[in-house]
Nucleic acid binder design. Structure first.
Lengths: 186, 186
DNA sequence: AAACTTGTGGAACACTTGTTCAAGTAGTTC
DNA sequence: GAACTACTTGAACAAGTGTTCCACAAGTTT
C-alpha cells in the first residue's frame, strides 16, 4: 500500500468537493483552476496535476454529484407518503437550494457532452429499475414532474414549501399508486 | 423620427440575436464581447456601447428569449390534441435542440439573479392566466411535466420522438381535460 | 452652416485565464 | 543508501478577457 497514492486520492477528492462548493456559490462559470484551488486550500497548480484539464475537473465533479444525486432521488421516490416526498422536494429548493441549482447546471452540462449523458441520466434509469412500475407511462410522468417542480421551484419568487407541494405530489401518486416501490430491502 | 436611433435599435437587436446564437452553439460560458461581436459582424466595442456590461447583455438576451418562449409554450399548451403537443415537444428536443438547451441555460441563470425570475417564470404565469384551469393542481403538474420532459429529453441518449411522447402527453391530459383552454379567440 | 446628438471602431490597459516547466520534497522499493 | 516514484509548488508564459478612451463620421436640429 502506497501512502502517497492514498493521500493523493484524498486530495483529488478534496478538489472535486471544492469545485462543487464553487459551483454552488458562483455557478459553473465561476470554476477556474485558481478559484477551485483557493477554495480547496491548495496551490494553483494542484488541480492541473490531478486533472488533465478544467473540463476534466468539471466532468469528475458531475460524475461525483451524479452518484449522490442518485441516492437522494431514490430516497425521495422510495418514500411512500406524498408528505414525505413533498418535504424532500421543499428542502431541495429551500435549505439545499444552492446544491440543487448546482446539480441542474451540471445536468445541463451533460446536454453538451454526450459522454456525460449516461451519468446525468443514471438516477432516471435506476429509478425505473428499482421501482419496476406497473404503469411505465405514469411513472415517466412522475419523474418528469419531479424535475419540473424542482426547476420551477428554483426560479419561483419564493420557493414553494412542503404544504404547497403536498397536494401536487399527492395528485401525482394518489389514485395511481401502481408504482410504489416493492418493499425495497434495506 | 431619428434615423440613427432606429438603426441603433436594429443593431442592438442584432447583437442580442447573435448572443443567442452563440449560446446555442457554445453555451452561456461561450459568450464574450468578442465572440458576440464576431457573430454579429460588428466591431468588438459595439456590445459595450449598447450594453453596460456583459451581464446586461445576457439579461437582455434572457428577456428577449423569454418572450419568444412564452409564445412557443402557449402555442404548445393551447393545442388540444395530445399528438400535437407531443409533436411540439419532440421538435423542441430534436430540430430545435440547441435552442431549447440555450433556453434552459438562461432559465437557470435566473436562478441566480432574482431580478430575472419574473421573466423566466412568465410563461408559467401566463399559461395559468390564459387557460384558467378548473383544477389548478392538475395543471401545475402538467406544466412541471413539460419542463421535466424537455430537460430529460435533452440529456437522453437519443432524444424522444413524437410517437414516444404521445402516450405520456396523452396520460397527462386525457381523462382530465378540465384545463383545456376556453376557446382561445384567434 | 453651426451646434448638437448618436453611433463607430481601432488602439490600448490592466487583469485573469489555462497550462507548462523545472526544481524540489517525501515516501517506497531494492 | 541509491534508485525510483509520486506528489508539491512557485514562477512564468502566451492568450484571451472586460472595459476605457478618443478621434471621428454621420445624421438631426436650429
Amino acid at each position: 500500500m502506497d501512502g502517497r497514492k492514498a493521500r493523493g486520492e484524498k486530495k483529488r477528492r478534496a478538489i472535486v468537493e471544492a469545485t462543487l462548493r464553487v459551483i454552488e456559490r458562483d455557478g459553473v462559470s465561476g470554476v477556474t483552476h485558481r478559484s477551485v484551488a483557493r477554495e480547496a486550500g491548495v496551490p494553483t497548480t494542484a488541480p492541473t496535476y490531478y486533472f488533465a484539464s478544467l473540463d476534466d475537473l468539471l466532468i469528475a465533479t458531475l460524475l461525483w454529484v451524479a452518484e449522490e444525486l442518485c441516492d437522494d432521488m431514490l430516497d425521495i421516490i422510495a418514500r411512500g407518503s406524498s408528505r414525505e416526498i413533498a418535504s424532500s422536494l421543499a428542502r431541495a429548493v429551500n435549505e439545499n437550494r444552492a446544491r440543487t441549482l448546482a446539480e441542474y447546471e451540471l445536468y445541463l452540462l451533460a446536454g453538451r457532452r454526450p459522454e456525460l449523458k449516461a451519468a446525468a441520466r443514471r438516477w432516471l434509469d435506476l429509478a425505473v429499475e428499482v421501482v419496476r412500475p406497473a404503469d411505465p407511462v405514469a411513472f415517466r410522468v412522475f419523474l418528469a414532474a419531479i424535475d419540473g417542480l424542482l426547476i420551477q421551484g428554483l426560479i419561483a419568487d419564493v420557493a414553494p414549501n412542503e404544504d404547497e407541494l403536498e397536494p401536487i405530489v399527492s395528485f401525482l401518486i394518489c389514485g395511481r399508486d401502481d408504482f410504489t416501490p416493492p418493499a425495497r430491502e434495506q
